Simulated scan of single mutants.
Amino acid sequence: MFLYKIEIEMEDTSAHLILLAETDEKAFSVVESHVARHYIKMPVLKSVAIVEKKRTEAGSGYLIPHQ
């Protein structure tokens, strides 16, 4: 299993999604469902990219500073 930091570019904004998945393909396959759960109206996704990928182990995580 891997911990993914995924950058999502939308029409008006951008976001980072942190998720656990077995492969890159499985990580990409759940991005839209996570975005849909967060917004009332599904935004148009312009791009989705893996920014970082780490093997999971105790203490694995990401720091995401405010911008």
Rank of each mutant, 00 (worst) to 15 (best):
M1F: 07
M1R: 10
M1I: 04
F2N: 11
F2Y: 11
L3G: 01
L3T: 07
L3W: 04
L3I: 12
Y4E: 00
K5I: 07
K5F: 01
I6F: 03
I6G: 01
I6M: 03
E7D: 02
I8N: 04
I8R: 02
I8Y: 03
I8T: 13
E9T: 03
E9F: 12
E9C: 04
M10C: 08
E11G: 10
E11W: 07
D12K: 11
D12F: 10
D12G: 08
D12A: 09
S14Y: 12
S14G: 11
S14T: 11
S14L: 05
L17W: 08
L17E: 13
L17Q: 12
L17G: 06
I18Q: 09
I18V: 15
L19G: 14
L20R: 13
A21P: 04
A21Q: 08
E22W: 14
D24S: 14
D24I: 14
D24C: 15
D24H: 12
D24G: 12
K26T: 14
K26V: 13
A27G: 12
A27H: 06
A27R: 04
F28W: 11
S29G: 04
S29F: 02
S29M: 12
S29H: 08
V30D: 09
V30G: 14
V30M: 14
V31R: 11
E32Y: 05
S33L: 09
S33K: 07
H34V: 13
H34E: 14
H34P: 00
H34D: 03
V35H: 02
V35E: 04
V35R: 02
R37N: 11
R37A: 06
I40N: 03
I40D: 06
I40H: 07
I40V: 10
K41P: 00
M42K: 12
M42Y: 02
P43I: 00
P43C: 09
L45N: 13
L45A: 05
L45F: 09
L45H: 05
K46E: 13
K46M: 12
K46Y: 08
S47M: 09
A49C: 06
A49R: 08
A49I: 08
I50L: 04
I50M: 01
I50Y: 04
I50N: 05
I50R: 05
V51Q: 10
V51E: 12
E52R: 07
E52K: 14
E52D: 15
E52T: 11
K53F: 00
K54C: 06
K54P: 01
K54H: 01
R55C: 00
R55E: 07
R55Q: 03
R55D: 01
R55Y: 07
T56S: 03
T56Q: 09
T56H: 13
T56A: 05
E57G: 07
E57A: 07
E57R: 10
A58H: 06
A58E: 11
A58W: 02
G59K: 07
S60V: 14
G61S: 02
G61L: 09
Y62A: 03
L63Y: 10
I64D: 03
I64F: 02
I64T: 11
P65Y: 02
P65A: 00
H66C: 13
H66Y: 15
H66I: 15
Q67Y: 04
